[in-house]
Amino acid sequence: MFEARITQGAVLKKLVEALKELVTEGNFDVSSTGLQLQAMDSSHVCLVSLALREDGFEHFRCDRNMAMGIHFQNLSKILKCAGNEDTITLKAEDNADQLTLMFESSNQDRISDFDLKLMSIESEHLGIPDQEYSAEIKMPSSEYQRIVRDLTSIGDTVLISATKEGIKFSTSGDVGTANVTLRHNTTPEKPEEQTIIDLKEPVALTFALRYLNNFAKATPLAPVVKLSLTKDLPIVVEYQIGELGAVKFYLAPKIDD
């Protein structure tokens, strides 16, 4: 038996909206410690890694480890039927072929339930080592969203360079070139408005903007985003979802022409 209850059902709605364009399907791996998902896009260029902790839910029970194969567009269709203020409960019997989603309105006067058909998905898990990064940058998620959106209208790829001067995003295309530099800035009183650059060594890497732009669909989940960069390694774009957990996006770099 698996059962997980989340009072802020809107978080689940936002999460699936953030993933569904990038990955069509994946396994929700549930265990007594929580819910995890690792899924690559169809071209194996980027990966979504989601980890929600058991103690982040109002109620969590998982008697037996299970991999629940989810089609994200279908899950999205069901979650669109949940109100933004609804409490959502996920339920499945052991080895079930369906996941039940129950929505309760905040004043408890409307209760609905939907069954999502589960899929059997053979997924390849990638072993992602814990490592030190050359540069870790925390910035407002709205700022990241704006930069990648703006640059996507100019070019296809972005060179991200982190130095002690700041973090610079550069692109070029048919219309011309664009550079946006953010400096380390801890002046704003609210931590979520600060830009914090933790630099061990300067690093510069090139990435496809299309994917970075897609990751920004997670902006409604968190006020801050963390970018982690190391020479010749994938970038990590990470959103902390309050006390519930985190979603991380990994994107392989482009080799410079």
Partner: peptide, 14 residues
């Protein structure tokens, strides 16, 4: 995209 690497060349399948 030309020059785009795949994640599987960085992280092994477990």
């Amino acid at each position: 995209l030309p020059g785009q690497q795949k994640l599987t060349s960085f992280f092994g399948v477990t």
